[in-house]
């Protein structure tokens, strides 16, 4: 099962490699990983998407907690939460879909952020499924280049990590 794990850790050099290293070292699966500073500049927040059985997930959470620089770990999937991912995609304007790009942009509620004579650059944000659906709407040949941020997420309401 897919899990979104939030990790608060000391904003120190090497902390990221410890987390990444842990996943390879123990054979844990990693689908995406995002990391950036929080409102407290001494802390970073990392969001990891992984999958595995409940026992594997239990180990992932425990092993993450064991890292000295990790302050807090929480499995977002087990609580009410919001998740988002950002996609930037370059679509060929010569393609069939390129012709009605405005229509697709409207349907998916995304933005055209740059246009040249041959290429539209489009920004999509939403759940990973929405991003997948957006990309599926194009003929693969018309997708020139994509970059995805990976998932980030936060719990709803008053509850903090």
């Amino acid at each position: 099962m897919r899990h979104i794990i939030s990790v608060i850790l000391e904003n120190e050099a090497g902390a990221l490699s410890r987390v990444a290293g842990l996943f390879t070292q123990r054979g844990f699966n990693i689908e995406s990983l995002t990391v950036a500073i929080t409102n407290d500049p001494s802390l970073s927040r990392m969001t990891i998407v992984s999958s595995g059985s409940d026992r594997v997930l239990e180990q992932i959470v425990k092993q993450l907690n064991k890292l000295i620089e990790v302050v807090k770990v929480s499995d977002l999937t087990s609580q009410d939460h919001v998740e988002r991912e950002l996609l930037l995609a370059k679509i060929s304007s010569n393609s069939k879909e390129g012709a009605n790009i405005q229509e697709l942009v409207e349907i998916f509620g995304c933005k055209v952020v740059d246009v040249t004579d041959k290429v539209y650059t489009i920004e999509v944000s939403g759940k990973s499924k929405k991003i997948n659906a957006f990309l599926d709407a194009f003929d693969p040949a018309s997708i020139i280049e994509v970059t995805r941020t990976g998932v980030t997420g936060i719990s709803r309401g008053k509850k903090l990590i």
Partner: peptide, 8 residues
């Protein structure tokens, strides 16, 4: 003492 050992 190490929670990660339990149920590993």
């Amino acid at each position: 003492i190490d929670p990660s050992q339990i149920s590993k």
